[in-house]
Design a protein around this nucleic acid. Structure first.
Lengths: 130, 130
DNA sequence: TTAAAAATAGTAATCATTACTATTTTGAGG
DNA sequence: CCTCAAAATAGTAATGATTACTATTTTTAA
């Protein structure tokens, strides 16, 4: 059960750190395979899950039915583009107060929230204007 | 392409309206089958999707990998219980202002948000206290 | 150096959901 | 009230993301 080093895990994490978008397991697999042609898709899934459990990466569920992964584990929000489907980072003030709003009058105990925004990303917005 | 009446669709919607929780397609299927033993699972999926597209019901994606459905189409939020997995309604003030917060300094255009809360539901909370 | 634990590659299985097809139901126009 | 094309259904097959399984390889503590 003790964690042992794995070259594959390191490569997967390093790849994820180079990406500003939020690739799916399949995209990670396609890319990592360029350098490690016989890495297995199962290995990619297993390590992405493991890294997410360790808190070294973040698993994003933005409602498109596919898990996305993000090497940036800091608290930040995402926007899913309604045009191109891309998932982009948002730089915005924190909105943790909505947890307090939700807790008011609730007979259980709210611990946190998951929020993603939808709208038109910068790239698509510029294209729409022209 | 014109919509035609279907007894199955009506029964599916009626069943959903009796439920305060937010059943999955499979749960709808199991229940509706009590009265309509040879309804097809595909019919349940097709009609739930159709009703959601028509805006007559709401499709909920709360990150557990399964779609939940809600006959209450009014804007409201949900809490996913970290103990029992149940999805419960929240009565809370609206938080649409977070869309404005997200839009500040964003080079695209935020149109809306999807938020669900996680925490301990009322039932589990009471059990934990005892 | 060694051997048990952990990880891997490759493949099979799972699970939610969608697609396909032959048959049945619905409903507008005669 | 018929008719018949459009729509919907039941039943089944296919899909796609993810997880499980297994024999083999890698890691690492002693």
């Amino acid at each position: 059960m003790a964690l042992k080093y794995s070259r594959q895990r390191q490569v997967i994490k390093e790849f994820l750190m180079t990406r500003k978008d939020h690739p799916t397991a399949d995209v990670v697999y396609m890319n990592v395979r360029q350098d490690y042609p016989n890495i297995s898709l199962g290995t990619v899934y297993r390590n992405l899950s493991l890294l997410a459990d360790l808190g070294e990466i973040q698993r994003l569920r933005v409602g498109d039915g596919v898990d996305h992964f993000d090497a940036d584990t800091s608290a930040h929000y995402h926007c899913v583009c309604t045009h191109c489907g891309k998932v982009v980072d948002l730089k915005m003030d924190n909105i943790d107060h909505i947890t307090d709003i939700a807790n008011k009058g609730f007979d259980g105990e709210i611990q946190g929230h998951t929020t993603y925004f939808h709208g038109v990303c910068g790239d698509c917005h510029r294209k729409t204007l022209s």
